[in-house]
């Protein structure tokens, strides 16, 4: 079985994904799908919201006689991502305590 990636965790994953290098929608979905189970229609609403929250920004680049919309992380987004990584590490530690039973 697989654990579902949704909500805040999905937001964090998308931010992390975009932070590596700017990418367009299809590319982002492909990269996400190579690691986790996400449907084709999952990413757009997340990208749009992160963009509205000022964590991502977009720019258009001509490609093949049309424009490709690239998503890029903002400074604010980078700060947020750092916070999320800390929160995630804390969270996995806690889950490990429950799941594996080690004392941390």
């Amino acid at each position: 079985m697989r654990f579902t990636v949704a909500g805040a965790l999905l937001d964090a994953c998308v931010l992390g994904l975009v932070s590596k290098k700017p990418a367009y929608g299809y590319e982002l979905t492909q990269r996400a799908q190579s690691v986790i189970d996400v449907s084709e229609s999952t990413l757009y609403p997340v990208l749009r919201r992160l963009q509205k929250e000022g964590l991502l920004t977009t720019f258009d680049q001509p490609f093949d006689g049309r424009n490709r919309r690239y998503y890029k992380i903002t400074a604010e987004g980078k700060t947020k991502l750092k916070e999320l990584i800390v929160a995630w590490e804390d969270y996995t530690d806690r889950i490990d305590t429950l799941l594996i039973g080690e004392d941390s």
């Binding site: 367009y24 929608g25 299809y26 757009y44 749009r48 490709r68």
Partner: peptide, 17 residues
């Protein structure tokens, strides 16, 4: 603006695919 953004995204998505 929301409609254009969403439809634009999926149009581009299908072209890229």
């Amino acid at each position: 603006s929301e409609v254009n953004s969403a439809v634009g995204y999926y149009e581009e998505y299908l072209l890229d695919a």
